[in-house]
Computed example of a mutant assay.
Amino acid sequence: MFGIILSALNMALAWLVRSVLVKFVAYFALWFITTEFIQVLQVAGVLPNASSLTTVLGGVPAAVWYFLDLFAFSQGLPIVLAAVATRFIIRRIPVIG
Rank of each mutant, 00 (worst) to 15 (best):
L68S: 07
I90P: 08
L70G: 02
Q39M: 13
R91Y: 13
L41K: 15
P61A: 04
V95C: 10
G59A: 06
V95R: 12
A26Y: 05
I90S: 10
V40K: 09
Q75C: 03
P48Q: 07
F73L: 00
A85L: 09
G59D: 04
L21K: 11
I93T: 05
F71K: 06
T34M: 11
L9T: 05
I93F: 12
F32R: 15
V95M: 11
E36I: 09
L16D: 09
D69S: 14
Y27W: 14
F88D: 13
V17N: 15
I38V: 15
A62Y: 04
Q42P: 06
R92Q: 08
A29M: 13
A82E: 05
L68P: 08
W65M: 00
M1K: 06
L30F: 13
V17Q: 15
Q39A: 11
G76L: 00
V20H: 07
V84Y: 01
V25P: 08
V17R: 12
V46G: 10
F24T: 13
I4M: 08
V25N: 04
R91H: 12
L41F: 12
A29P: 11
N10G: 09
W31A: 06
V64N: 07
F67M: 08
V80Y: 07
F2M: 07
F37K: 13
A62N: 05
S52I: 02
R92Y: 10
G58W: 03
V17D: 14
V64T: 03
L21V: 11
I96Y: 14
A12T: 14
G97F: 06
F67C: 10
L70W: 11
E36K: 15
Y66V: 10
T34S: 15
L68Y: 02
G3R: 07
A62V: 12
L57Q: 01
A62H: 05
R87A: 09
G76K: 05
V80D: 05
A63C: 05
S52T: 01
G59M: 01
E36F: 11
V80T: 04
V60C: 01
V25Y: 10
V84I: 08
T54A: 00
A50N: 07
V64P: 00
L30S: 14
F28R: 05
I89W: 08
Q42A: 07
V84K: 06
L70F: 01
G97K: 11
I33M: 15
P61S: 00
R18L: 14
L16K: 08
N10P: 03
A26H: 10
A8S: 12
D69W: 06
G3V: 11
T34P: 12
W65N: 02
I38M: 06
G97I: 02
F67I: 03
A72M: 11
S52K: 04
A29E: 04
L70E: 04
A72I: 02
V40H: 15
V20C: 13
R92H: 05
S19W: 11
R91N: 13
T86N: 04
L68N: 09
G58K: 01
F2C: 03
L6K: 04
F28V: 05
G58C: 01
F37H: 09
F71D: 03
G97N: 01
L16C: 15
S51W: 02
S74I: 01
L81C: 03
A26N: 12
